[in-house]
Design a protein around this nucleic acid. Structure first.
Lengths: 119, 119
DNA sequence: ACTCAATAGATGCAACTTGCATATATAGAC
DNA sequence: GTCTATATATGCAAGTTGCATCTATTGAGT
């Protein structure tokens, strides 16, 4: 298809909130399971997204040197981050309703837009 | 909020299909009414999106010099454009379902994510 | 000891996209 | 003659993305 890309931000906020403490490498896997699109997640952009969330004050981070293997940058959601997630929920709710409406209209103008018997 | 931007492409394909013939300036208004987000639509990016759709073979255009005022570049949907719209419908259907699922999960981990008694 | 793979995070850069300002031109109203 | 609405387009700075690449730690295999 081409476009659609992210919505990575709200999913990250959600995952960090749910896990309490989370680090990038681990989130890459969780993201694949919870992503809103099946578009491949670039690890580089994931790490950058997390740093950006920190710059915006949505998460804080510190190095975790416990355990084996290389150090992990562990993120925790801030109050502001949770507020941001709440805003995302409202936006995505609105967006998914708009899409539903659009799909109904669009299906009526194109031929053979298979709708699959579900719903 | 910040992000979310477009989904301008599928709405343009839909509008051009529904109208049969359509030009940019006119579509700017229709877009405001049918857009999936309430984000402001940049006219410049609208014109560029239409030219891009033409490059991709989704629409064809020609100048309409009838009527008063400056000439209009009138667009018509191609078969490929209609196919592309059909693909968009599938993608958006999938996406809106994913969002619904995500919203349910996310609401359960944040406090006071007002869901509005509707639905 | 040496090598390899998995884990973990990050940067460099070219290519692309976006937002904003601006340019061009026609036509009707005043 | 000037102003506004209509109509399309470009230039450029700033931001974003995809891909390749780099660093480093640890454990397993030989």
């Amino acid at each position: 298809m081409g476009n659609l890309y992210r919505f990575v931000e709200p999913v990250l906020l959600y995952l960090v909130k749910r896990k309490g403490r989370a680090y990038g490498y681990e989130l890459a896997n969780d993201l694949r399971a919870h992503a809103l699109t099946d578009a491949e997640i670039e690890v580089a952009s994931l790490y950058r997204a997390l740093r950006q969330l920190e710059v915006n004050g949505c998460v804080t981070s510190e190095w975790d040197v416990e355990g084996s293997g290389p150090a992990r940058r562990v993120y925790v959601l801030t109050a502001h981050g949770e507020e941001h997630l709440r805003e995302w929920i409202v936006v995505l709710d609105h967006l998914s309703r708009s899409m539903k409406r659009f799909i109904r209209g669009a299906r009526s103008v194109v031929s053979g837009a298979g709708r699959g018997a579900d719903e």
